[in-house]
Design a protein around this nucleic acid. Structure first.
Lengths: 184, 184, 184, 184
DNA sequence: TATGAATGAGAGTTCATTCAT
DNA sequence: AATGAATGAACTCTCATTCAT
């Protein structure tokens, strides 16, 4: 079991450095040899995890296609990531609403990511594909909707296939619970 | 300062029972006279807070109007509540993704609330107002979108008036970033 | 359940005043109305119990019969008492070897009792019925032998009838594991 | 002062872990590094002490001589031990009649020891040296008589030399207060 | 005479951190 | 570069005792 998974399973405060050391098969002192303290270890692990997500999303942003296509792919990547690295997602949401001490560092990490989403939204509004909503609000709605629904899906799949789940999420974000495609 | 606010500000583990007692102007022993332990105090406070939200939403559900009108009002109530009781919302999101120990109790509290949302969604789908999306997925998307965007709005209002913020949230949930009203 | 039994079952320190109050069906404050503190309550209960034993033994000492007959009856009374009031016996042995604070009070209580045994032993030695052993040593040996064997008998009866158990104790004390009746 | 002596002097509950740590000249945490909790430390110390007694007695049991000679030596060893390690003896008697929680562990420790005595008694009865008394009863009588009289002797020597004290104990156990050597 | 909510000193325990090896 | 025994500050929780009613 990797260190990040231990943290994810039990939370920062309920995970001891002893447990981390046990899972890593190293002595406790070794951890302090590599990291200044428990918190720095924790932040390093989170950063590492999110770097992966940012990397994948960055490829999409820089890649080909219009805003709509990019956003679809981004949602898919995000859903996949939240499933694959559910432990990091847990940690992130938890800490984002968590103690004031870490918020600053974590907000910085998250904002870098959300800026990528915001960029796509702006691009889509400029070329008329998306409706003129406040990017700041929409970005967080998308992030919240995808994260919370995915984590719930992981907990209690409710009989849906992954494909059907993804389709529902995308449709919800693109057309809401009520809207339809514009008449061309 | 009330006990729940102390927890909200610093988080469960970083809040000591001494601090709670100081803020309540009672002796530490008094807290243990009324609550079995720190955790039970914490859960009791959360329950109390959420009971308020559930009460308000229940009025809407049982009240007049069709599903669309109800959902609009529900979102408004939820946004208002998240603003008024942002501390409880923080706590809740944090713990929901938090340690495994509390998850069971908290999930029970949350599910009661989400069932109310699900009821409205089903009603709207049955009478044709809403599109046929999976209720299970949509419910969590709405909750996540509203919670995360509202909390972010509280942190960094970004120049939006509360009315404009609410309008954006409702439009996002009803029509997504792309959909439009159906042609009658 | 009476207060003394609660103490006997769990020991002084592991019994709370709350438990005593519950068992007595009175409020905690009431106990402090009648007794100065927990310790005084405890000593009062022990005194009460031992007064019973002393009373019974005193009757024997003052009664008819020679030393041998008296000692036999005394042993029987002691065995009976230890069985009937095993809780007090437990408490007594425990405290006798227990904390230094109570030892003084309890030793006084015990000594009054042991003096009665010593008196019988002296009487028996003077009239030649008993061998000339040091009364001080013998008294404690008898007390220890009877108490420890009886408490063990209460715990694990080992298939002996009460009569057979008593017979063994008396024989052990009178003739040891090896001795026989003198030739007349 | 060793940890066991602190416990012996003040009793389990009235001895704090801080005191133990002070006497050992280590930090409190060090104790918890080596022992799970206060109770396990306590039991470990008792076990250690009794292992010494068992070792000495085992040598006798396995050694040369008939049952009578063995028992004499055993009593002497026991008296010596109770004097040398009076603190452990105190603790043991106290706890044996003490709280229910420890009884199980302590009974196990004691039984191993008493079995050694019982073995000698049986051997002596089989070869006709000892009278046919119930071993189960006699074993506990001997243990109780030796322990209680020795502890009392330690408290108030009453003018007896150690040799005279031991002689009285052995005679009491072998011939009781009344019996004599059989006619050969 | 009786109550029981409130108290607070003091206890056991945890665990991130250090440092001699 | 790695270790793990030792640390001690800080925490949760207990419970005998008090006192206003």
């Amino acid at each position: 079991m990797k260190a990040i998974e231990v943290f994810a399973e039990k939370g920062y405060h309920e995970t001891t450095v002893d447990e981390i050391a046990d899972n890593l098969n190293v002595a406790k002192g070794t951890i302090y040899y590599h990291y200044k303290n428990k918190k720095q270890l924790y932040l390093a692990l989170i950063n590492e995890g999110f770097a992966t997500l940012k990397g994948r999303v960055f490829e999409i942003v820089e890649g080909s296609g219009n805003a709509e296509e990019k956003l679809k792919r981004l949602i898919q990547v995000q859903v996949d990531f939240f499933q694959e690295y559910s432990n990091i997602t847990f940690i992130f949401l938890r800490e984002f609403y968590g103690n004031v001490i870490n918020r600053h560092e974590l907000t910085a990490i998250l904002n870098e990511y959300l800026d990528l989403i915001a960029g796509i939204l702006n691009e889509g509004q400029e070329n008329g594909q998306f409706r003129p909503l406040e990017t700041e609000v929409t970005t967080f709605m998308i992030f919240g909707a995808v994260a919370v629904s995915t984590l719930n899906y992981l907990h209690q799949p409710a009989g849906l296939t992954p494909e059907l789940f993804l389709k529902n999420v995308i449709e919800g974000i693109f057309y809401g619970i009520k809207g339809v495609e514009r008449q061309k």
